[in-house]
Design a protein around this nucleic acid. Structure first.
Length: 572
RNA sequence: CGGGAUGUAGCGCAGCUUGGUUUAGCGCGCAGCGUUCGGGACGCUGAGGCCGGGGGUUCAAAUCCCCCCAUCCCGACCA
């Protein structure tokens, strides 16, 4: 592509409303332009990258036996009512009405659509298994779009849906998709981890997230460097450190409980400061209520946080933190403790509390805390469990090694759905045994546009983007240092033509501007190789070759370009 | 939805506190001419603004007051 005829608006400065490098750079390099909050246009350069990513995904999906189709964005409400998600999905769903007052939504995902297709056309076990995918736009009215392409309200996703007659066939496809995702991310050259994850609104019984590691990512994950155990922070299990040591040793004698006056002090931090004890010698009592208003109390060691999801999963109920203003069961907010708590309140304790001696708790009286509280002498719990988030210093439940905490961007998510949708939507098939059974489903999503953000986030420097070769918009940038010298522009034209013949994605910066701007732009948009045609060419017939990644430079005569290309490609 | 902030030329910003020398500025970018020409060159000339929108206060509003809108950040929430 000749830059003089191209559309590549670059920006010299970071736009004011960007926070992270990938956002700033994708705007500066002219990949995208913001149209509204969470809505972007892809400019030609951005589209080029998007297509490259799509092609890699397509190749891997096809290799893994998935079959491409295209489902509509516009989806009738009746399908969503049938699955129950018309209500469940809430305000995230973009809804609209047609001229006849029929309701539709813009698809945030396509389980309903694909299950309806299966209902229409899959009749027998002989039609199974089958795995269908599409690459298409999705709409979600996110509460807070942010960070450019990372979290948008309209985005491009590859989603695949599998149907099988039995669990073992599902397992095979799930594994294939898992491996294909690894190959996709590997080919693009991203550092990532696969973590076990919560199934969320999509539902089902097993799921893995593909997290591309990035400091600015929204996902927190826990990782064991020894055995490779990794899980989403919300789900992660760990052995809490210092359970058996520290100040509250098991061996310590149980002292007698005392009330201490603690006026106005309700938080763990203030309390630790006031009583001159460590936070881990304090036990927090967190009060939750379910949708029927029933109250539950959870004990967690002072240096950790209650994980609401774990509590919910344990009790199999939706829970929320008790509203501050609400008066219930004589609870003294800020001074709640397990000893003397109303008997009707079920009390659960996190494992981190085990083994503590002579700890501090609320006294259930205004402005009073208790010291030297002990279990089981002073209170009983209904049951013990893992209800807290892992914390620094925790060790792996599998191998005991110290866990690491990492951040990243969720790029892919695969689910074993089971029969959740097929049952609700009557998608059944006739099995070998002559019985009608619901189809067993899986779904597999990967964020195409989000990969652009992740790749930039992982690979950039102060000059701009450093594209990995697999998804470069262009491989080589031919730069003439001036357009005034006919000899140079003729050579540029010739080399550009030659490279095109060699089937190289080549950019030709033939703009009539100073060389400095050409170099800066080239680095900003991340082209891996620069062919520089300047003085050296006039003097000695040589072109300079510079690499984006490092300082390495070589000079070659114009005739050995094919040889250079050959060598470069064979190195990959 | 709660908390915080911002909105002035295509982009980045100053001016607002204390209303009037502001005919609304600066840098970059953009157009023309000339000189430059291997890491965002220089000079001259020029185009480009309902100061986010509406209402008010005032002799006078970018500036003060009220309402609305948009955008960003934190939180809640979220394949």
């Amino acid at each position: 592509m000749k830059l003089s005829e191209f559309y590549m608006p670059t920006l010299k400065e970071d736009p004011s409303d960007t926070e992270i490098p990938s956002h700033a750079l994708s705007l500066r390099a002219g990949l995208i332009r913001k149209i509204a909050s969470g809505v972007y246009s892809f400019l030609p350069m951005g589209l080029k990258v998007l297509r490259k990513i799509e092609e890699i995904i397509r190749e891997e999906m096809d290799d893994a036996g998935a079959i491409e189709l295209l489902l509509p964005v516009l989806q009738p409400s009746n399908l969503w009512e049938k699955s129950g998600r018309w209500n469940e999905y809430g305000p995230v769903l973009f809804r609209l009405e047609d001229r006849n007052d029929r309701y539709f939504c813009l698809g945030p995902t396509h389980e309903e659509l694909i299950t309806y297709l299966a209902y229409l056309d899959i009749k027998s076990y002989k039609d199974l298994p089958v795995n269908l995918y599409q690459i298409q736009v999705k709409f979600r009215d996110e509460i807070r779009p942010r960070y450019g392409l990372l979290r948008t309200r309209e985005f491009i996703m590859k989603d695949a849906y599998s149907f099988s007659a039995n669990d073992s066939d599902l397992d095979i496809i799930y594994r294939k998709m898992h491996d294909a995702y690894c190959r996709i991310l590997g080919r693009i050259g991203l550092k990532y981890r696969v973590v076990a994850a919560d199934t969320g609104l999509i539902g089902g019984d097993m799921s893995h997230e593909f997290i591309v590691l990035a400091e600015n990512g929204e996902e927190n994950i826990v990782f064991c460097p020894e055995c490779g155990y990794s899980e989403n922070y919300d789900m992660a299990k760990s052995k809490s450190s210092n359970v058996e040591d520290g100040e509250g040793k098991k061996a310590d004698k149980e002292e007698s409980v005392k009330e201490v006056h603690t006026p106005g002090i309700t938080g763990v931090d203030e309390l630790a400061e006031f009583l001159k004890v460590k936070k881990k010698n304090i036990i927090k009592t967190i009060v939750l209520n379910d949708d029927k208003g029933k109250i539950y109390a959870f004990l967690v060691r002072g240096d950790r946080e209650l994980n609401l999801k774990k509590a919910e999963n344990y009790l199999k109920k939706n829970l929320e933190f008790l509203e501050k203003g609400k008066k219930a069961k004589n609870l003294v907010m800020g001074y709640i403790g397990p000893k003397g708590l109303d008997n009707d309140i079920e009390l659960y304790a996190d494992n981190s509390v085990k083994g503590l001696r002579n700890f501090v708790t609320g006294a259930n009286k205004k402005e009073l805390h208790l010291i030297n509280v002990n279990y089981p002498r002073d209170f009983k719990v209904k049951s013990w469990g893992d209800f807290a988030y892992p914390a620094r210093g925790d060790t792996c439940i599998k191998c005991g090694e110290k866990l690491e905490f990492e951040k990243g961007m969720e790029i892919g998510h695969i689910f074993k759905l089971g029969c959740k949708y097929s049952e609700k939507m009557d998608a059944k098939f006739l099995d070998v045994d002559g019985k009608l059974k619901p189809l067993i489903m899986g779904c597999y999503g990967i964020g195409v546009s989000r990969i652009i953000a992740a790749a930039i986030e992982q690979m950039h420097d102060d000059k701009g983007i450093i594209w990995p070769d697999a998804i470069v918009p262009y491989m080589i940038n031919v730069i003439t240092t001036t357009e005034k010298n006919k000899k140079l522009s003729e050579a540029g034209d010739k080399i550009y033509k030659k490279l095109k013949e060699l089937d190289i994605d080549v950019l030709y910066d033939d703009r009539n501007i100073s060389a400095g701007i050409k170099f800066k732009d080239s680095d900003l948009i991340g082209i891996p190789i620069k062919f520089i045609i300047g003085k050296k060419f006039i003097d000695r017939g040589l072109i300079d070759i510079e690499y984006r990644k490092d300082e390495e430079k070589v000079e070659i005569p114009i005739d050995s370009i094919p040889e250079f290309i050959n060598k470069y490609q064979s190195l990959k």
